[in-house]
Amino acid sequence: MIGLIIKRMFQLLFLLFGISFLVFSSMYIAPGDPAAMIAGPTATESDLEAIRENLGLNDPFLVQYGRYLGNTLQGDFGYSYQTKQSVAEAIAIRFPNTLKLAIASMIVAVVIGIITGLVSALKHNSWLDVTATTFALAGISIPNFWLGAILILIFAVNLQWLPVGGLNEPFYTVEGMKQLILPAITLGTASAAMIARIARSSILEVIKADYVRTARAKGVKERTVIWVHTLKNAMIPVITVIGLNFGFLLGGTIITEKVFAINGVGRLMVDAIAMRDFPLVQGSVLLVATLFVVVNLFVDIVYTYIDPRISYD
């Protein structure tokens, strides 16, 4: 297991190096002039040239990338072109909101997805199965921005049960939980539908296994058969989907943060791209990529505890 972690750490370094190169290259060839964004419409050409020289934008591509990579390895992600704020500080301020939203959405997805998949599999070909399958199809098909707008219209505007947006209260307070409900449902619905479909297929496969039939023939309680013999052995593909979806949720909160006016990393990234704020874009993407790889490493470790037959030695 230690060998696996060390190996993945090396893979993480190479992956982040490749991602940093791709992101830096994309921003380098993207249309638009950061100097013009900084100086504003009234700037003269001499003003723009002075800004480019000060930021090192006149240097060749490899020189700029080498300087950026060297600073990044020292923990210096640079400063925002627009606000002059440290990139690390700007991300640190907003990341808790994104993390809270991703965790809340994942809880919604796991609870709804596993329960729906389990009921659908146990009541195979019944009206409950058809309803659950329809929910899964609808959950994957409905766009986040539309679902978020509908939830706001119903529960915030008409019924006034929940706040319209924002995420500025501690999550452990009543108001903080209220602020999380609508965005968590909006973001977690598609993941819940995907988990439900995978859980249904996996449980249907496991429930026909010989050891499940043997457990029932020996008179084991149906509750034990379902929760111990069936669900546990069906969780490997489900955990894979959960891990991948959590990584996607950390980097895919952009639309939800926009709809619910949440000051998170996704919204920061979109605004930075629009303003050609290269350091903010690069820092945000590196953070999301790192978290995605770490989550997948955690999933690989969890495998060995769920199924002792899995070994990475």
Rank of each mutant, 00 (worst) to 15 (best):
G251D: 13
K208E: 04
N233M: 11
L16W: 14
V270Q: 15
P308W: 05
I236H: 11
Q11P: 05
I154Q: 06
L187Y: 01
K100R: 14
I262Q: 12
A192M: 00
I181Y: 00
I152M: 03
L57R: 06
I236F: 13
D47C: 09
G176Y: 03
R213T: 15
I273R: 13
D307E: 14
E169V: 14
L99Y: 04
K100T: 14
G70E: 06
P34E: 08
I203T: 08
S20P: 06
K208L: 00
T98C: 15
P308I: 06
S46Q: 13
T256Q: 03
E257M: 09
Q282Y: 04
V294E: 00
M106F: 07
G266S: 10
L137D: 02
K123Q: 01
L287G: 03
T304L: 15
F10C: 04
A50C: 01
S25L: 15
A50I: 09
L55R: 14
T214H: 13
L55E: 12
A261W: 02
A190I: 08
E49M: 10
L4M: 11
V87C: 09
A192K: 00
S311E: 08
M235Y: 04
F278P: 02
G243W: 01
I310E: 14
V63I: 10
T133A: 05
V270H: 10
Y305Q: 14
L12I: 10
M275Q: 10
A156R: 04
I112Q: 01
I112G: 02
S126F: 03
H124L: 03
Q282W: 09
I140K: 11
I226W: 08
L13D: 11
R52G: 01
I310L: 07
I242V: 15
T304V: 15
S120R: 00
M9A: 09
A90C: 11
Y68T: 14
F95T: 03
A274Q: 12
L297W: 01
L12R: 02
T72A: 04
N71Q: 13
N233F: 04
N54I: 06
A88T: 11
I203D: 06
A215M: 05
L286K: 09
R309W: 06
A88Q: 00
E49I: 09
S126L: 10
L137R: 07
K7Y: 03
A104Y: 06
F155P: 01
G176W: 06
F95K: 09
L57I: 08
I262T: 14
F95N: 08
A289Q: 01
M27Y: 13
K208V: 04
